[in-house]
Amino acid sequence: TGEEYIAVGDFTAQQVGDLTFKKGEILLAIEKKPDGWWIAKDAKGNEGLVPRTYLEPYS
């Protein structure tokens, strides 16, 4: 299990392996990579890379 984050903006996948999401979606951070791209999972179970700058902790 990971930590929940809320998307603060829309993001469209730029390449294969990225995860597209919309502002307000809750994402589960699976792995926090030091380069600023995290592996996350959305509510539908889709998994991919997301930019850290689009996420804020969800409580």
Rank of each mutant, 00 (worst) to 15 (best):
T1H: 14
T1A: 13
T1G: 13
T1V: 13
T1F: 14
T1Y: 13
G2Q: 12
G2L: 14
G2I: 13
G2P: 13
G2W: 15
G2K: 12
E3V: 11
E3K: 09
E3N: 13
E3Q: 13
E3A: 10
E3P: 08
E3D: 12
E4T: 14
E4Y: 15
E4S: 13
E4D: 06
E4K: 15
E4R: 14
Y5C: 05
Y5S: 00
Y5I: 02
Y5T: 01
Y5Q: 01
Y5E: 00
I6C: 07
I6A: 04
I6S: 04
I6L: 08
I6R: 09
I6H: 03
I6M: 08
A7G: 04
A7T: 10
A7N: 01
V8W: 05
V8F: 04
V8T: 12
V8G: 04
V8K: 11
V8D: 02
V8E: 03
V8R: 09
G9R: 15
G9K: 15
G9F: 15
D10C: 07
D10V: 02
D10Q: 04
D10M: 03
D10S: 09
F11I: 04
F11V: 05
F11M: 04
T12C: 12
T12K: 10
A13D: 03
Q14G: 10
Q14M: 12
Q14L: 13
Q14N: 10
Q14R: 15
Q14Y: 08
Q14H: 11
Q15K: 15
Q15P: 02
Q15Y: 10
Q15D: 10
Q15M: 11
V16E: 14
V16Y: 11
G17H: 06
G17W: 05
G17M: 05
G17F: 05
G17N: 06
G17Q: 06
D18Y: 15
D18A: 10
D18G: 14
D18K: 10
D18R: 11
D18T: 11
L19F: 03
L19G: 01
L19Q: 01
L19A: 00
T20L: 03
T20P: 10
T20V: 04
T20Y: 03
F21H: 00
F21D: 01
F21K: 01
F21M: 06
F21E: 01
F21V: 09
F21N: 00
K22S: 09
K22H: 09
K22N: 08
K22R: 12
K23I: 08
K23Q: 08
K23P: 03
K23N: 05
G24N: 06
G24W: 05
G24C: 09
G24I: 00
G24P: 00
G24R: 02
G24K: 02
E25D: 15
E25P: 00
E25Y: 04
I26Y: 05
I26P: 02
I26K: 07
I26A: 03
L27M: 07
L27H: 01
L27F: 07
L27Q: 00
L27P: 00
L27W: 00
L28V: 14
L28M: 11
L28G: 03
L28F: 11
L28P: 01
L28Q: 10
L28N: 07
L28K: 09
A29P: 06
A29G: 04
A29R: 04
A29Y: 03
A29F: 07
A29D: 01
I30E: 02
I30Y: 05
I30P: 01
I30N: 02
I30R: 04
I30L: 12
E31A: 11
E31N: 11
E31S: 10
E31I: 12
K32N: 04
K32F: 07
K32V: 07
K32L: 07
K33G: 12
K33E: 05
K33P: 07
K33I: 06
K33D: 06
P34Y: 09
P34Q: 11
P34T: 12
P34H: 11
P34N: 12
P34D: 14
D35K: 03
D35F: 05
D35C: 09
D35Y: 05
D35N: 11
G36N: 06
G36R: 02
G36K: 03
G36E: 06
W37H: 06
W37D: 04
W37P: 03
W37Q: 06
W37M: 09
W37G: 04
W37A: 05
W37T: 06
W37N: 07
W37S: 06
W37I: 08
W38M: 08
W38Q: 01
W38D: 01
I39Y: 13
I39E: 04
I39N: 05
I39G: 03
I39C: 09
I39W: 14
A40H: 01
A40L: 09
K41T: 07
K41Y: 05
K41W: 05
K41A: 08
K41I: 13
D42W: 00
D42P: 01
D42E: 01
A43M: 14
A43Y: 09
K44E: 11
K44P: 03
K44V: 09
K44G: 09
G45N: 06
G45V: 00
G45R: 02
G45Y: 02
G45F: 03
N46G: 07
N46T: 08
N46D: 08
E47Q: 14
E47I: 15
E47F: 14
E47W: 11
G48S: 00
G48M: 02
G48C: 04
G48V: 03
L49Q: 09
L49N: 11
L49D: 04
V50S: 01
V50I: 05
V50A: 08
V50Q: 01
P51V: 03
R52P: 13
R52Q: 14
R52G: 15
R52F: 12
R52H: 14
R52M: 15
R52A: 15
R52E: 14
R52C: 15
T53F: 12
T53G: 14
T53I: 14
T53Y: 12
T53N: 14
T53M: 13
Y54T: 06
Y54M: 15
Y54L: 15
Y54S: 09
Y54E: 07
L55C: 04
L55G: 00
L55F: 05
E56L: 09
E56S: 08
E56R: 09
E56V: 11
P57M: 07
P57V: 08
P57Y: 08
Y58N: 07
Y58F: 12
Y58I: 12
Y58V: 12
Y58M: 11
Y58K: 08
S59T: 14
S59H: 13
S59M: 12
